[in-house]
Design a protein around this nucleic acid. Structure first.
Length: 318
DNA sequence: GACTCGTGGTG
DNA sequence: TCACCAAGAGT
């Protein structure tokens, strides 16, 4: 059982969403920005942030010239703020080492901060119309069902997954639409829950032929959030984004009152990640606060990590 | 390969 | 209600 690329491309041409980063005037850098934002994040939440972002920083050099703190604020509550930091670093590398032009080659793209196997191929395909397999969670699910007759994809394996999709890729200039179409199909029709098989454009689906056998995979661990370090980190980042000036330890403490050990651990991890820095007087701020990249400010977290956290007693200014 | 890293919509 | 899920990357 296989997938007929013409069915995917034809369907995509009819029903494709008019997402802003799909318009012809959008640059490779702006497509790259959308791919960073879309990592593990729904389209609806990305759209407004992406519009503001590219209006403010339309090129890699413009992004690199911004301060890391401004970048983290513009990222807002998209989540996983390490992505914002990597995007800033990625802009810096492209501006400094690639003539302010997003590389076309997958192998070169893979050397950029925050660019992994999916993002590198998505840029090569969607920004530069290359015929390379683009494998995201949607594509893996569509292939698992239509080709392999399974309810859902197994554990990700870049080699195997990319070989699967490479075998399906049309050998002509419709490859980018085919890849975008597979992703769109997984996002709109062949969804994880309640797939809309009644409107699926594929005339051959191994999963349907087999009678929709249920998943045999063991139940995945629940993705907890409430009460986790991630939630605490989010609270702390929320406090820091909201403040123009560095904040005291006490101001951070009120963001998480239930478990002080966990709070300390979360703050320390933010310092390690280079998302937060400690000022010389012991207060805390977003990394790169008050500095732009042109000043050569330490946007990596080494500086913040060098200073041991001061005790709360040391810091209780009156 | 297993684990971590945010946030908010939804069935 | 709350478990599940969403264009992954890095360690």
């Amino acid at each position: 059982m296989s997938i007929d690329p013409r069915e995917v491309v034809g369907w995509f041409d009819r029903v494709r969403r008019d997402l802003p980063w799909r318009r012809p005037e959008v640059s490779a850098w702006q497509i790259l920005v959308s791919e960073f934002m879309l990592q593990q994040t729904p389209v609806a939440r990305v759209e407004p942030i992406w519009r503001d972002w590219i209006a403010r920083w339309p090129t890699p050099s413009a992004t690199a010239a911004a301060g890391a703190a401004d970048v983290l604020r513009a990222w807002g509550k998209l989540g996983y703020p390490r992505r914002a930091k990597r995007l800033h670093e990625c802009a810096t590398v492209i501006a400094a080492e690639h003539g302010d032009v997003v590389p076309e080659d997958v192998e070169v793209l893979l050397t950029l901060p925050g660019v992994g196997s999916y993002t590198a191929r998505a840029i090569a395909c969607f920004a530069y119309q290359q015929s390379v397999p683009v494998v995201d969670t949607n594509v893996r699910r569509v292939v698992a069902r239509a080709v392999h007759g399974l309810a859902d994809a197994g554990n990700p394996s870049a080699k195997r997954d990319e070989a699967d999709v490479a075998a399906l890729l049309p050998d002509d200039d419709t490859a980018p639409r085919f890849s975008a179409g597979l992703m769109e199909l997984g996002a709109l029709v062949c969804t994880a829950r309640n797939p809309k098989c009644g409107v699926c454009p594929l005339s051959h689906c191994a999963w349907r032929t087999a009678g929709f056998p249920p998943s045999t995979a063991p139940v995945k661990k629940v993705q907890k959030y409430a009460g986790t370090d991630r939630q605490v980190r989010g609270r702390l980042m929320d406090v820091l984004r909201a403040s123009d000036a560095p904040v005291t330890r006490a101001q951070l403490d009120v963001a998480w009152l239930t478990d002080t050990a966990q709070r300390d651990r979360a703050l320390d991890s933010l310092l390690v990640d280079g998302l937060v820095e400690q000022t010389e007087d012991g207060r805390f701020a977003l990394a790169g606060e008050g500095a732009d990249a042109g000043a050569g400010a330490p946007s990596s977290g080494a500086r913040g990590r060098m200073q041991p956290l001061r005790s709360r007693a040391d810091n209780s200014e009156g």
